[in-house]
Design a protein around this nucleic acid. Sequence first.
DNA 1: GATGAATGAGTTTTCATTCAT
DNA 2: TATGAATGAAAACTCATTCAT
Lengths: 191, 191, 191, 191
Amino acid sequence: MKEKDPNKVKAIFEATINLFAKVGLSGLKMSEIAKEASIASGTIYIYFDSKEKLLNELYKDSKQNWEKLISERLVNKQLPLKTRFKAIWEEGLKFRTFEYNKMVFMEQFTNSPFISEDTKVFSNKSIQPIYNILNEGKESLILKDLDNTILLCLVYGLLKEISFYCQSDNLKLTKELIDSTFLLCWDALKA
Amino acid sequence: MKEKDPNKVKAIFEATINLFAKVGLSGLKMSEIAKEASIASGTIYIYFDSKEKLLNELYKDSKQNWEKLISERLVNKQLPLKTRFKAIWEEGLKFRTFEYNKMVFMEQFTNSPFISEDTKVFSNKSIQPIYNILNEGKESLILKDLDNTILLCLVYGLLKEISFYCQSDNLKLTKELIDSTFLLCWDALKA
Amino acid sequence: MKEKDPNKVKAIFEATINLFAKVGLSGLKMSEIAKEASIASGTIYIYFDSKEKLLNELYKDSKQNWEKLISERLVNKQLPLKTRFKAIWEEGLKFRTFEYNKMVFMEQFTNSPFISEDTKVFSNKSIQPIYNILNEGKESLILKDLDNTILLCLVYGLLKEISFYCQSDNLKLTKELIDSTFLLCWDALKA
Amino acid sequence: MKEKDPNKVKAIFEATINLFAKVGLSGLKMSEIAKEASIASGTIYIYFDSKEKLLNELYKDSKQNWEKLISERLVNKQLPLKTRFKAIWEEGLKFRTFEYNKMVFMEQFTNSPFISEDTKVFSNKSIQPIYNILNEGKESLILKDLDNTILLCLVYGLLKEISFYCQSDNLKLTKELIDSTFLLCWDALKA
DNA sequence: GATGAATGAGTTTTCATTCAT
DNA sequence: TATGAATGAAAACTCATTCAT
């Protein structure tokens, strides 16, 4: 990625995600991305060497956003675990609904021929903070003593599904929804 | 051979799913599918008019398998709700793990340029039986009185995530896993 | 062309001409010819080595039919030239209307990549008898003293056009039509 | 170059006709057309959606050229009918000889699998002006009182055949040829 | 001999990428 | 830098021909 107009990079990323939401990963065409970004197709190549590079950069960018959010939400250790967890839940649900297409892009991209070896080894620190809070909950006997992988499946699984229905307007992201879905989540996890 | 070989359709479907697992939807090439199915590329076109048709048929077939399973599991109304639900859970988890790639294919296909209008309106009776059991549980005050969409998000979300880790060998599909994940699920749903 | 069932050869020829009338030379497909002839596509290859061979054989066969007709019509030298010419005209018009598609096939085939060197040198004796009658007419000062090529253009040109409209039912091949078109032809040719 | 090159359409049309003259309709290949037009095969698809579209557009363009010529030649009503008719004859013969391949393309295309329903209903105003002059001639008792279809068969038939021999250099398009062929035509038509 | 599913070479068509403007 | 027409390698698709039955 060359250092040129940063707004254009952002525009290209946005156009790519918007298009992805419409046509999926397999439907993404450079010419269409350019059209969606209101630029010429050749212009994309000023910012990205290839389609593969563009998608990998977009993946990394999206992943960093998500990780940044998670880690930012985890600072305050003063509050009770349930309160902290709920804060993460709320933030996660909002973020995932708002950035739904980015998240789905990330998931599909991981299992596509576009992902480079380089990107595959890209940081996966997003899981660590959540791991920590789960460990803390298990140690203090608040949460079920199950493998973190299993507990995370519940949290992420519910998060993904709910955010899907929210972004497609089958569910409204209200305070009530956040509360009731967190209740489901918590009842499942608690010892 | 003079008669159209019914096994060939199956072989093509399997080859497509296998390849999909390796390269994703965007990486699927007719020539590669043919190679994977050990037939000539032209042969695919004897059974399917086009790539689009093939993928749509595969989608419908996969969906029907899933729906068939769900509805078959729901016959015996004698047993208590929790027992019946657990049976579905176990079966669903096994099926989804075993047919993991088909399930992911279905999800990605739904948001791809390949899906036809025809397929979009294809039956969605898979949800009905589960809806019924959820309604029954809510009426008898066993389950939380929440929107079915929300409750299904929990069930499906957990199912999807667990089966993902099972098929990738990060989790083993043992009796213990089935029990503990069902416990998570049930604790979440129960009133 | 192997010597097998001669009816099948005829059926294949007919099917080819019928199909040609519908889809033109470029639209001819071996599988469609087979279907039109109510046989399997492989069967065609028992009678003809290749598509090219089939078309070349059909061309030769069609050409021979036409030449046979012309020469048969020219035997009786007793009658006056105009009478003999009119007989040819009538016969030619009937034949061309009836065998319209064969004639058009022949014309298009001549200018196609299918025609073999072998067929190109195939006899062209069809013109000779007409040449003779034109020469006779010019010698006896009945017909215009113009190049035979030019005179033939008039005869064939009118013949082709009229037969086109007859076979497409825009003209009816009645005695009146034969008379009036022959009159046109004769008025043009006569000195 | 940033603007679509209007000459390119013309170049593609010309390449197609040139190639058609060599290999016929069934021998036309997009890659060969591109080579003949000295462009990349992909470039054709910037100007035409498909081979079918290209051929249909070429047909319409060719037809319009012919119609334009015919109608332009018919303006001056001052001159005697025979003079006007001869002018058309001369012009038609020259045009048809010069554009011989276009004319043959048009005829073969009409009976091919490429022609679209859209093109089938494409204007056929070329006949009208000639119809008018024939009607005028019949009313003033100069021409034979025969169906216009029949009279046109003679005119077009002769025109087609003569131009065929001219373009293939078996006849030379001299003043004498124009005169003698017109004489043939006129003798046929005149009452 | 007859069949028609299977084959794969040869087309058409797509689309990431280049490059003249 | 920005453009978008042009490119051509690669993918989808066709269809003459083969061959097991």
